[in-house]
């Protein structure tokens, strides 16, 4: 019990530091807390956040998905290019299907073949980068009729005063949260992540459970790619570069344990939002955009440190 209190204090310490940071930025950059800027941050967050929802499933089983960054690139290129070729609706279907397929391949290799998740998805990251260049021939693609297409609604639309991507993210978060908390699939995810052997002894097929988490991750990255393509109305070959780390940082920052079995969707929503505001704040304070990479590093280290500290506390006491 005492350890738990300690953990809460530590976690609150992090939130406190975040609030101090917010206040600091707000005092020095008056644009920071304006509704317009907040909506901008949320728009940005909705893409990484959507990806992070799926990655949360994977991390909860105690595994990783580092392929989502280059998967985002590939799928954004596909959705934009196919929009020009086949039209918006087929483009969306193809994008989601491709996302599911890549997720299934990851899931097959990690879940059924039993290869190490880090290696499998890192290799997939490399493979997909190659595939992007293969597909696009190295050139960037743009939506040709950007002013007319209804495809714009996903990245640029508003509904009831809220940006559509933000609504998509929130709806996705609610659905993902409900699945994890209230369905038998969610229970299997926590079971496999918490103790894989005990879950197998309880008749749970850990291979299928892991497989489906990667499929979910592929799907959410597909939705993120649709938002991204719609927002940018184009796709560069590097558009998703580094996103895998931002996404992972958000998941960890929320407090979902890399060891699996503990964490949740709302934690991810908080973590990824905090990260979004930190990055935006740094930009408004006049730091170059690449400073956010340095900060991502620090955030990952601190969050993992806290995770470890909480565990160590439990062992000692």
């Amino acid at each position: 019990m005492r350890q738990t209190m300690n953990g809460v204090l530590r976690r609150h310490g992090l939130v406190l530091a975040f609030l101090v940071f917010l206040a600091g930025v707000a005092l020095n950059a008056e644009a920071f807390l304006t509704p317009g800027n907040i909506l901008d941050v949320l728009r940005q967050v909705s893409i990484t956040g959507m990806m992070a929802l799926g990655v949360t499933f994977v991390v909860l089983t105690g595994r990783l998905d580092l392929s989502v960054g280059s998967l985002l690139t590939l799928l954004t290129v596909i959705v934009v290019d196919q929009h020009n070729i086949a039209g918006p609706f087929p483009a969306i279907v193809m994008t989601l299907a491709a996302g599911l397929a890549v997720g299934a391949l990851n899931g097959l290799l990690v879940g059924f073949v039993g290869l190490n998740a880090l290696i499998v998805t890192l290799a997939m990251l490399s493979f997909l980068q190659g595939l992007v260049l293969f597909y696009s021939g190295g050139s960037n693609v743009n939506v040709q009729n950007a002013q007319e297409t209804w495809f714009a609604v996903f990245g640029r639309g508003d509904f009831l005063g809220l940006p559509v991507p933000v609504i998509l993210f929130l709806v996705g978060a609610v659905v993902a949260g409900l699945v994890l908390q209230f369905t038998s699939f969610g229970r299997r995810v926590y079971g496999v992540g918490g103790n894989e052997t005990a879950s197998i002894f309880s008749g749970i097929d850990a291979r299928w459970t892991v497989f489906w988490t990667y499929v979910v991750s592929g799907f959410t990255t597909g939705v993120a790619a649709i938002i991204m393509g719609s927002r940018v109305m184009g796709a560069q070959n590097t558009i998703g570069q580094g996103y895998e780390l931002t996404v992972l940082a958000g998941v960890i920052l929320g407090g979902t344990s890399l060891l699996g079995g503990s964490g949740s969707v709302w934690r991810t929503v908080i973590g990824i939002s905090m990260l979004g505001f930190i990055q935006n704040g740094l930009l408004l304070l006049g730091f170059a955009y690449y400073v956010q990479w340095l900060v991502t590093w620090a955030v990952i280290i601190i969050a993992v440190w806290i995770d470890l500290g909480a565990k160590r506390g439990r062992i000692l006491a």
Binding site: R187, G191, N195, G203, S262
Partner: peptide, 28 residues
């Protein structure tokens, strides 16, 4: 190692081998 998911409570550990009996159309 084999019997329990230690971070879960008694409720979730008890239903773990019988998720189908404890759910309707996958809803717990």
């Amino acid at each position: 190692e084999q019997g329990l998911v230690l971070m879960m409570g008694g409720r979730e550990n008890t239903s773990l081998p019988h998720l189908r009996l404890f759910s309707e159309v996958s809803i717990m």
